[in-house]
Design a protein around this nucleic acid. Structure first.
Length: 294
DNA sequence: TTCCAGGGGTAGA
DNA sequence: TCTACCCATGGA
């Protein structure tokens, strides 16, 4: 069966879902031959489905088609859950019009964004984004992909129609798989961070997902995120971006490399000088940086 | 072997 | 608030 979503233009589906590295992390994949985003998803009922999302241009809007592979019928509630999760993953409900306006006065940036980019991919749950972000710290991208792939393969529910495909595990499933972390999943010292977070969610009722709609001011949200063991300044900024707060940039090795090369040819700037490059973008700093480097 | 990758926790100042 | 040191893992 398939479900549909309408998105106001401008919206560049194929570019948007690939603009952020999350497109390469299980259980998400981009299928070139179909121009589709594929995601294996475990629904609240426990049913595992495979989603193929494709974009279709029309005059006034873009239609997203979600083809759902499933065993048996989907209830109305399950269909709504899928729509809700896809809307969240693709950030379809964020209003970027103010950002686009600001970009219009920057020719180079506007050239990249005018087709409707800027909605960077995220995960249906904040829990998944936190785990993935922990897997990006102090390691290489290829190792990050391996870590996430192993978490999904060893702990996530398989799709009945193809046991090679797995969903992202719930906190409960991560906790239940504790014994596999050291020898199979191998996140190094990150094992303890992921397990501790899962334990807090499962056993202490820590409600990460409530943060998504809390509307907390950025500073308080950052404080909340940094209460998670393993989340420091870089990871908090990454997660703030995921949650739709774009007013801070984590000056990490990537940002440093881009800014030094592009704006400071020669002398070595401090992190404050680097951050100041994007100051005039106000609440849109992260997106301005992101597409400056894109 | 040694270094280090889109860092973070901790102890000690 | 700042610094030094440690942290598993695997590729270069």
């Amino acid at each position: 069966m398939n479900l549909q979503l309408q998105v106001a233009r401008p919206y560049d589906f194929a570019r948007s879902v690939r603009d952020y590295g999350w497109i390469a992390l299980a259980p998400v994949r981009w299928l070139d031959e179909l121009n589709a985003l594929r995601r294996v998803e475990r629904l609240d009922t426990g049913k595992v489905v495979v989603l193929h999302v494709t974009g279709h241009e029309a005059a006034e809007a873009v239609t997203l088609r979600i083809d759902v592979q499933t065993n048996g019928k989907l209830t109305r509630r399950e269909q709504e859950e899928i729509r809700r999760k896809v809307r969240w993953m693709l950030k379809l409900d964020e209003d970027l019009s103010e950002f686009y306006q600001a970009c219009a006065s920057d020719a180079a940036l506007w050239e990249k964004l005018k087709t409707g980019r800027g909605r960077l991919l995220r995960s249906p749950t904040l829990f998944e984004d936190v785990v993935k972000t922990i897997c990006t710290t102090n390691t290489t991208w290829s190792q990050t992909k391996g870590m996430v792939e192993r978490i999904v393969r060893f702990l996530g529910d398989p799709f009945p129609g193809d046991p090679e495909l797995h969903a992202f595990p719930t906190p409960e499933q991560i906790l239940a798989g504790e014994a596999l972390f050291k020898d199979k999943i191998r996140l190094g010292y990150r094992n303890d961070y992921v397990l501790q977070l899962a334990r807090e969610v499962v056993e202490k009722g820590r409600d990460l997902e409530a943060l998504k709609t809390s509307g907390l001011p950025a500073a308080e949200m950052r404080r909340e995120l940094k209460r998670i063991k393993g989340i420091g300044d870089y990871a908090a900024s990454t997660l703030l971006m995921s949650l739709g707060y774009y007013d801070s940039i984590a000056v990490d090795t990537e940002v440093r490399a881009l800014v030094v090369k592009k704006y400071f040819n020669g002398h070595k700037p401090t992190d404050k000088e680097i951050a100041a490059v994007y100051d005039h973008w106000g609440k849109w700093k992260y997106l301005a940086y992101w597409f400056d480097s894109a």
